[in-house]
Design a binder for these strands. Structure first.
Length: 172
DNA sequence: GTAACGATCCTC
DNA sequence: AGGATCGTTACA
């Protein structure tokens, strides 16, 4: 029986955690007792106020306050008026950073991921180390991966736009 | 108060 | 290539 990922892992740096999460399992426990397990296959790192692609680069606001918390909580927000984005806050308190979950096995794209997992705004602030309805666990398998620039952040300027902070498991 | 704009996805 | 669709942010 695999066990839930704990706090000390999730307080690590986002640039270490984004690739480390590949191959780990996100477990969803719905109201009727059903358990569904999803293997993470694609992530992106957003790191600090200097990262112009990261929401906290525009200052500490009501929405981004959650990213300043200690790692282990979820940051969920709406983009384009219709898609929920699921992020795991990482790092220590006052080190604003998060991993965007862009894909799980069989599901590509961050908007489709939240639709499949039934994630909405009620998950914002949820603690992955305590929640009865969502958590992380080890599969014991680490996946080979490649890196690319992050998607959909043309506004961030050349330096930050080109950081190879997207991590994609290599399909075999 | 008002306006502009997305860490996307689907259809043409 | 273009439209959907609305919360967050910035600015008056």
């Amino acid at each position: 029986m695999t066990k839930r990922i704990e706090k000390d892992f999730l307080t690590g740096d986002v640039l270490d955690l984004a690739p480390a999460l590949l191959g780990m399992q996100l477990v969803r426990h719905d109201g009727t007792g059903n358990l569904r397990t999803f293997t993470i296959t694609e992530t992106e790192a957003y790191r600090g106020e200097e990262d112009l692609a990261c929401h906290v680069s525009r200052g500490r606001t009501a929405r981004t306050e959650i990213m300043y918390r200690e790692g282990g909580v979820l940051y969920v927000y709406l983009v384009y008026g219709m898609h929920w984005m699921l992020n795991i806050v990482t790092g220590r308190a006052e080190e604003p950073q998060a991993v965007l979950l862009r894909g799980v096995k069989g599901v590509r794209g961050p908007g489709r991921l939240t639709k499949e997992l039934e994630i909405d705004r009620s998950y914002n602030g949820e603690d992955l180390t305590l929640s009865p309805r969502i958590w992380l666990q080890n599969s014991g398998i680490s996946l080979a991966y490649k890196t690319t620039p992050r998607i959909g952040i043309d506004y961030a300027g050349p330096v930050w736009k080109n950081k190879p902070w997207r991590f994609v498991a290599i399909s075999s």
